[in-house]
């Protein structure tokens, strides 16, 4: 297995605010959905974050990402070092399709309809006979098509899928993902989870060492399944490369306390957060740098 060598930025920008995801309030979620229904509103915020110093965008493979990617492809000169960390899939897309069309129907909807492979997938029976690994590869390719020509040094599995596979105990699925992301995309595989201790144990059990894992890490212990103490111990152990998300626990912790807690956990490589206003982005960015120590501070500078 190749070594982990991609150096992650200290500060990473997240995307929940753009797609109407808010863990605190449906009303706020809708207000955000309205504000960002024009894709220019999204790219303006990404531009603001870039000016401030954040050049990594960790984003779900939501269908609207296609337009964001178009913008960055068209403005490569303006953002020469911009990088995306795609997180796949956008689970609701699949969940709604399964509800509407059933398992096989949904699979057919998301598999490519062109190319030599298409003949395989003409009928439901053919899909049913295809092996899981080929289907997984095709689905990953379908999700990654949006990012063609852009830098994607780390590619994540979304938490709903990570945690589903984890609960089912399908460790081989992680290996399929890990190997394909390295080979086909020359990128680092990453895992988003709400169950860090269990995931790390499972990844290790199938030979995946020192993985990039993005999980909730916050002072309030919000959605840190397996317990905050166990998270802290694992971070300290250096057995994985942690990215902290939900550091404000959806606003439950005051900003300074929240960042202070995260920066006290010495093994954390990166912090991902989402915000919509220049003031809030700047404030959070500054807080993270101020509370961070040593060389890590320099990583976030563009």
């Amino acid at each position: 297995m190749p070594e982990n060598n991609h150096e992650m930025d200290r500060v990473i920008f997240g995307d929940n605010q753009f797609f109407g995801v808010n863990h605190m309030s449906e009303e706020k979620a809708r207000a955000q959905a309205i504000r960002f229904q024009d894709i220019a509103a999204v790219t303006n915020v990404l531009d603001t974050a870039y000016q401030i110093g954040i050049r990594t965008f960790m984003c779900t493979t939501h269908e609207r990402m296609a337009q964001v990617c178009d913008y960055f492809r068209a403005n490569m000169e303006k953002y020469p070092d911009y990088q995306f960390y795609p997180c796949m899939p956008y689970a609701h897309k699949y969940a709604n399709a399964v509800t509407e069309q059933g398992m096989i129907g949904a699979l057919k909807q998301f598999l490519p309809t062109d190319g030599k492979i298409s003949a395989l997938f003409k009928g439901g029976k053919a899909v049913a006979q295809a092996d899981v690994q080929s289907i997984a590869h095709l689905l990953i390719d379908a999700e990654m098509k949006t990012f063609e020509g852009l830098s994607t040094p780390v590619i994540f599995v979304q938490n709903v899928i990570t945690d589903l596979l984890l609960g089912l105990g399908v460790a081989d699925a992680f290996k399929i993902f890990d190997e394909y992301i390295r080979e086909r995309y020359n990128a680092e595989p990453g895992y988003i989870t709400m169950n860090l201790p269990l995931l790390l144990e499972t990844l290790n059990s199938c030979g995946i060492e020192n993985p990039i894992i993005c999980s909730n890490i916050n002072k309030a212990a919000f959605r840190m399944c397996g317990g905050q103490a166990s998270y802290e111990k694992l971070i300290e152990s250096g057995r994985f490369r942690p990215i902290a998300m939900s550091v404000f626990a959806s606003g439950a912790i005051p900003a300074s306390d929240a960042i202070n807690y995260v920066c006290e956990q010495k093994g954390i490589e990166s912090v991902v957060f989402g915000a919509s206003s220049r003031g809030h982005i700047q404030e959070t960015y500054d807080l993270i740098l101020r509370h961070s120590q040593g060389a890590e501070m320099e990583l976030a500078a563009p």
């Binding site: 945690d163 589903l164 709400m194 169950n195 959605r223 840190m224 399944c225 626990a249 959806s250 439950a252």
Partner: peptide, 11 residues
């Protein structure tokens, strides 16, 4: 978020 107890496994 404030009212929820932790569970042993989250999905």
């Amino acid at each position: 978020t404030e009212l929820t107890d932790e569970v042993w496994y989250y999905l």
